[in-house]
């Protein structure tokens, strides 16, 4: 028996007759008993990867094994060992929460009695007991995700795919769901998590690969990925966009990594924070530009992604924008 929950080599998958290479030679080893994160922006190939591993799609080339079973040759065995909760919260709106879980349980070939017992247990575990007999139509987004997650666990699968579990949720529901997922992890379930939220990967995953345009561009633990950058991020906020541009040009040479400008804030990743900050202030002062704020902080995974790909995880994303604005204030 293998120690890996997922082993895949050189997976290639194209769409529209080769026009789009959704996965371009991806190899993965997901160890059992941990949360493995696939991190990447929209269109990076995360969901395609999960769909291949869950036997919904076939790869064009390459091999993939899930719990030791080949996803193409032994798809039936793979389906018996996995649970899947998707970003679209694929629960049936017209059924109640209870009926949804029982249905998935029956279709995973649990007996009626066991399916019902599991449904009650899971509704309780996910705080849905009171809503269990209500039509899913009346559920909030967060409740649907919890139900979706519950349904995917009905047969107690050793491996769970979580495809962007919190995409589109409000911050509170996201925090709640993270708590729920953390409980699962403590129970020893292996989880393959895809996310475009770096904060989510940082919080939940112990091992990460970063995908961009169907290729793995980095892998490691979240601290390792952060260490690939300098140790500190220096954020300089200027009074105007124009000043930010001028200031950026002046301080650019202080870092050997690309600088990042967001509004009137310029960010550099550097090795020696205080010394670089002092030098930056001297240069900006000499150029008679006014500095509105200055902050030193540890690099986040946002910074990792930016330095690896040259673009942020998702342009215009509310949460990213929110975290960036906090940074410039701090």
């Amino acid at each position: 028996m293998t120690d890996f929950a997922v082993e895949c080599d050189n997976i290639v998958r194209t769409f529209r007759v080769g026009e789009v290479r959704a996965l371009d030679g991806v190899s993965l080893r997901v160890p059992k008993g941990q949360v493995f994160g696939l991190l990447g922006p929209n269109g990076s190939g995360k969901t395609t990867m999960v769909r291949i591993l869950s036997t919904i799609l076939k790869p064009n080339s390459g091999t993939a094994k899930v719990m030791g079973f080949d996803v193409v040759k032994d798809a039936e065995s793979v389906r018996k060992t996995i649970g899947m909760a998707g970003q679209y919260a694929t629960v049936d709106e017209n059924l109640t929460g209870f009926e949804n879980i029982v249905m998935i349980g029956r279709l995973t070939h649990l007996t009626k009695k066991v399916a019902r017992r599991r449904a009650n247990e899971l509704l309780e575990q996910f705080g849905l007991t009171d809503a269990g007999n209500r039509s899913v139509k009346t559920y909030s987004g967060g409740m649907r995700r919890r139900l979706d997650l519950g349904a995917s666990l009905v047969s107690q699968p050793p491996l769970l795919f979580l495809d962007e579990p919190t995409t589109g949720l409000d911050p509170q529901s996201r925090q709640d769901l993270w708590g729920v997922i953390e409980q699962l992890i403590e129970g020893g379930t292996t989880v393959l998590l895809t996310t475009q939220y770096l904060e989510e990967a940082d919080r939940l995953a112990s091992q990460l690969v970063v995908l961009d345009h169907g290729k793995i561009i980095a892998e490691g633990t979240p601290p390792e990925l952060k260490a690939q950058l300098g140790t500190t991020v220096l954020a300089l906020t200027f009074e105007s966009l124009e000043d930010a541009q001028k200031g950026g040009d002046i301080v650019k040479s202080l870092s050997d990594k690309p600088i990042h400008t967001e509004g009137s804030t310029v960010e550099l990743t550097v090795d020696s924070g205080p010394a670089t900050a002092a030098e930056a202030i001297r240069r900006i002062d000499a150029a008679t530009i006014k500095l509105k704020g200055l902050a030193l902080r540890e690099p986040s995974l946002d910074d990792v992604f930016l330095s690896l790909t040259g673009h942020t995880t998702e342009v215009g994303d509310v949460n990213l924008a929110a975290s960036t604005s906090q940074v410039s204030k701090g």
Partner: peptide
């Protein structure tokens, strides 16, 4: 709605 996608990842009969 993605329900069929979910069904396809279950060990249920393909014809069902």
């Amino acid at each position: 709605r993605g329900l069929i996608e979910r069904f396809r990842a279950l060990p249920m009969a393909r014809s069902a």
